[in-house]
Design a protein around this nucleic acid. Sequence first.
DNA 1: CCTCAGTGAATGATCGTTCATTCCTGTTTA
DNA 2: TAAACAGGAATGAACGATCATTCACTGAGG
Lengths: 193, 193
Amino acid sequence: MAREEKRDAILQATLELVAEHGFHDAPCSLIAERAGVAAGTIYRYFESKDELIVAVYRDLETKINTTLLRGYTLEAPFRERFVHLVSGLLQYFIDSPLEFKYIEQFHHSPYGVAFRRDKMLGQDDPEDCNIYCELFKQGVTQQVIKDLPLVLLFDLSFGPIISVARNHILGFIHLDAALVRQIAEACWDSLKR
Amino acid sequence: MAREEKRDAILQATLELVAEHGFHDAPCSLIAERAGVAAGTIYRYFESKDELIVAVYRDLETKINTTLLRGYTLEAPFRERFVHLVSGLLQYFIDSPLEFKYIEQFHHSPYGVAFRRDKMLGQDDPEDCNIYCELFKQGVTQQVIKDLPLVLLFDLSFGPIISVARNHILGFIHLDAALVRQIAEACWDSLKR
DNA sequence: CCTCAGTGAATGATCGTTCATTCCTGTTTA
DNA sequence: TAAACAGGAATGAACGATCATTCACTGAGG
């Protein structure tokens, strides 16, 4: 197994175990076993378990961003662009339940809070505040969507998506493509003027 | 200290420590210390740490329900009733950040998932599916709100609220009464026909 | 023969839980 | 009235389990 493969195997094993059992019941011993390496090997690739956990999250974030940008055109009207992004995200979660579970675990742990705080502080970076920011800011100045703080626009858009995705993945409801679109449109209704 | 007082002290200490540090960094030894009792005493009131954690959640749930029912009249129009409930919940979270943090931790842990699944299965109980259910069902049949599965209506209503509350409590935004109302109304917009 | 990635048993810390003991309070006995 | 007693509540040291992490060792490749 090549070096990069081994690293990926550890990342994947961490993703799976944390998603299935939570952070506390994903001991390094199990991660190593599932990755097909020895426990000590993890520490040749990552300084600590904490660093490993953050690395998994970073990977997921970039993976999602590139997925969402497929088929996204700046020329389309607001509503269409919004529905594209939001329903795209929901569909991604539906297709990748393990990744969704991991992200949720991460967000609601000390890791995630610290990570988020860091990101908020370094918010000058225009590369970071990406497509969503741009879309919302434009929408506000052009008076297409409600004049609310950016953070709240995010909450109104993605709060329901997260909640819906969780209920789908836990099996409390089954979402098809039509429902996904309906939900994205309902989110739009909460934003539009 | 009377018996009931001691039980309450343990519940309160658990609430605080879990909210501040998470489930894994709230060991029984610390809970006992903050409650002013010995570690072993916890097991005179609760069978296990798991049971203690669920007991705290149960308490919070009933406390919130009674709070929300204050000033709630079945005669008011749909939109008004909805805004009352939703903005009431958000205001409750703003006023009780520790309780909010605890509830979030609980929901995103194996405890919460199991708890929720149990509740879903025993859903015949009409007492359980309370004011919200009633409101949504009425709204759907009277064609005031969108014809979506009940679960999704919950997600659209409370998903943003949870998300907004978290950002307020983490200090990423400051909410005043006016904003709370605006948010509740935006949620209504996503539900209404 | 040298190098270094890989190994996994060992380590020390910490966890939830237990249980022999002590403490406290109300009742009985002298 | 005081002393002796009884029994449940409270205690906290101790236990076994489990965790993240380490490091002396191994062996394959150059």
